[in-house]
Nucleic acid binder design. Structure first.
Lengths: 297, 297
DNA sequence: AAGTAAAATGATTTTATTTCAATAATTGAT
DNA sequence: ATCAATTATTGAAATAAAATCATTTTACTT
């Protein structure tokens, strides 16, 4: 009845990764012959070829490409399941895989993780920041167990709750002309270099809530990966950035940076933490959310 | 290296479904002994029991429950993959699995499917209307390939586009007191029996956009599964319902029902069709969306 | 054309799975 | 309380599947 097995998916994945059956065999600790036999048998069972034999190389057929997609989707889930079983076996509770869709929150997360790890010695924590299909997709696809994000999604299957509010502010060097302003208007940024994280421009609050409505662009736009470097760039007067007020205030003294309100009202933001509904009963997951609540910056 | 195989998940799933290892063996066309050996070996490999042996019955351990979840999630995907491979083998293109989160759209869908099936003779169409984790979850979880919904989700990994606009109206019998009204106010429904589909009350437009803002409740609330019965109930004066105008107009003459605008402005709605971004290149999927566009009611 | 690298194939060996048969434990019924 | 029926476990034997080894075929390189 069942013909498609884990090994078939593994072979397809490894042939793509390694480039040849022979190389795939090495990675899988089997002989080239074994893989050839196994896959030939699969092809006979399903009645269609997985590869086009072009000379001595293999190119995926349409069916093969489909299978590669299945492999890339399902194999990681099987691996993760096995890993988790081993954790159960050792009395560990599992790994809490946290996804982050909020760059600066990383600093905040670090402060939560420390007490969490000591309260839950048998739970590991893993943080991921890159998702092919976005955080929501990663949650649905069982790549992560929790998602920290400013964009919640109230849909069946998922549960989001707010963990803290904050104000998104402009950071400038304390020597900067704008350092003493009570608040700034969009136009005042047209002569500034704006430093942001490398995300799509529409997801940057300072664009979609501040600059774009006013039709303003900064003089230049620089992209920096990490918060620390970003702040140093700002401190040295190379540009301005938009970050949470709590983050800026934390570094204000030591780094010589100053927060400035964006617009008269300021930009208000909220961070949510989301999980799959079916998981919400898991004690160590609930505990994390609770700690997150208590540790609002 | 890899120890968790498809058979293990199948056994766990079937033991839960059938109630015993013996019954599971029958379903899997194997002996009870074989399953016992197989699972014993798995338990040794992962180092933890899957079942608690209580008398002559098996109860899942924590690890076992976890595996059951994995099984219920992954086995259907493997089954679907095999099915699709067989379709490839027979020169068929596959099955387009369409999810519906819009009850009355079913009537509209029926009209699209006919021409689609004749244009794509090698593509099958399957329609699902119930999702454990909502349509979005079903899309992410590869349970369906397309989702017809009034609630799009513009997130990475998914792509939604509007297919048509319509007005949500009240349907009443032509003998009804409200039948000649140009439009009605919420208060006028407080003495009516309201018939709706069986969905959460918050997802009903007539509630969340009309009655609730005015703080009004209908005299009674009846739930009906199918559109046809619903219309017959309305025609026979047993109650009123809220449905798309195009649907009502289609049945107006033969059934003796009349559409009435909800509120002065009416309730405007939009239906979207969504797909996984990675699938948007598939020709027969694109074709369906195109036909859907052209067939706006 | 020779040499090399890759995949396929066939025969054999090895390993894993399945069945068979027997046992033990538990449940339900009389 | 006993008996019959049901269920799971276990060990040994039989069967089936998979892996290897040795060889062949193909096509790419120089």
């Amino acid at each position: 009845m069942a013909i498609l097995e884990r090994i078939h998916l593994q072979v397809i994945r490894e042939v793509e990764r390694q480039g040849s059956l022979t190389a795939a065999a090495k990675v899988l600790y089997l002989t080239q012959s074994a893989l050839s036999h196994t896959m030939k048998k699969l092809e006979q069972s399903i009645g269609t070829d997985v590869w086009l034999r072009e000379g001595r190389s293999l190119r995926l057929t349409q069916a093969g490409q489909y299978l590669l997609g299945v492999a890339n989707r399902l194999l990681p889930q099987l691996d993760q399941a096995e890993e988790r079983l081993h954790q159960y076996a050792q009395g560990e509770r599992g790994t809490l895989r946290i996804g982050m869709e909020c760059h600066p929150c990383y600093q905040w997360l670090l402060k939560i993780v420390a007490p969490y790890l000591s309260q839950w010695p048998d739970v590991d924590v893993d943080v991921k920041q890159k998702f092919q299909f976005g955080g929501i997709g990663a949650l649905f696809g069982y790549e992560i167990d929790l998602l920290v994000t400013p964009d919640p999604l109230f849909k069946p299957g998922l549960r989001f709750e707010p963990v803290f509010d904050y104000e998104q502010v402009l950071v400038v060097s304390r020597n900067h002309a704008l350092a003493t302003a009570e608040y700034i208007e969009p136009a005042q940024l047209s002569s500034e270099v704006l430093i942001t994280y490398p995300v799509e421009i529409d997801r940057l609050d300072i664009y979609n809530q501040f600059l774009q409505p006013a039709g303003i662009s900064p003089k230049r736009h620089k992209v920096i990966e990490t918060t620390d470097i970003m702040l140093q760039m700002v401190a040295s007067g190379r540009g301005v950035a938009a970050l949470p007020r709590w983050l800026v205030e934390e570094y204000a003294n030591e780094m010589g940076i100053v927060p400035v309100r964006l617009g008269h009202q300021g930009i208000g933001k909220q961070i949510f933490i989301g999980a799959r509904e079916v998981d919400t009963h898991i004690d160590y997951l609930k505990a994390f959310i609770e700690i997150a609540h208590l540790s609002a910056p």
